[in-house]
C-alpha cells in the first residue's frame, strides 16, 4: 500500500515533461529492470532554476521522480547533492520496502544530471 502523498504525486505529477534547452540531463535505469528515469535540468549561476522528468516505471518510480523535482528545484547544486538516497522516500511519507530502490533511482538520476552539467561546463 502506498501513502496518500505517493498517490498524489503519481496521479498529479509535478514538473513532468521535457526542457528543450536543458543545461544537463541525467538518465538512469533500463527497460529490462522496468524503470527508466530521465531528468532535465536548467541551471543558472549554480542554482537549479528548472527541473523536469520523464519516467517509465511503477507508481513509486513516477512518484519519487515527481517528489525529487520538487525537492531539487531552487536548490544550489551543492545543496541538491546533499539529498540522500532515501530522503525522497522519507519526504513521501515512506515507501514499501521493495520500492525503496525507486528512491535510490531518483537520487541517482539527479546525481547523473549534475555530473552531466559539470562535464558540460568544465
Amino acid at each position: 500500500m502506498y501513502t496518500e502523498k505517493v498517490m498524489d504525486h503519481f496521479h498529479n505529477p509535478r514538473n513532468q515533461g521535457v526542457i528543450k534547452d536543458a543545461d544537463a540531463v541525467g538518465q538512469v535505469g533500463n527497460p529490462v529492470c522496468g524503470d527508466v528515469m530521465k531528468l532535465y535540468l536548467k541551471i543558472n549561476e549554480g542554482k537549479i532554476v528548472d527541473i523536469k522528468f520523464e519516467t517509465l516505471g511503477c507508481g513509486a518510480a513516477i512518484a519519487t521522480s515527481s517528489m525529487l523535482t520538487e525537492m531539487a528545484k531552487g536548490k544550489t547544486i551543492e545543496e541538491a547533492l546533499k539529498i540522500e538516497k532515501l530522503d525522497i522516500a522519507k519526504e513521501l511519507g515512506g515507501l514499501p520496502a521493495p520500492k525503496l530502490h525507486c528512491s535510490i533511482l531518483a537520487h541517482d538520476a539527479l546525481a547523473a544530471g549534475i555530473k552531466n552539467y559539470k562535464e558540460n561546463n568544465k
Partner: peptide, 14 residues
Amino acid sequence: PGVEGESVVLMLSR
C-alpha cells in the same frame, strides 16, 4: 510495450 503494469493498474483503479 512502453508502460509499466503497476502504473496502469493504479491509474485504472482511480
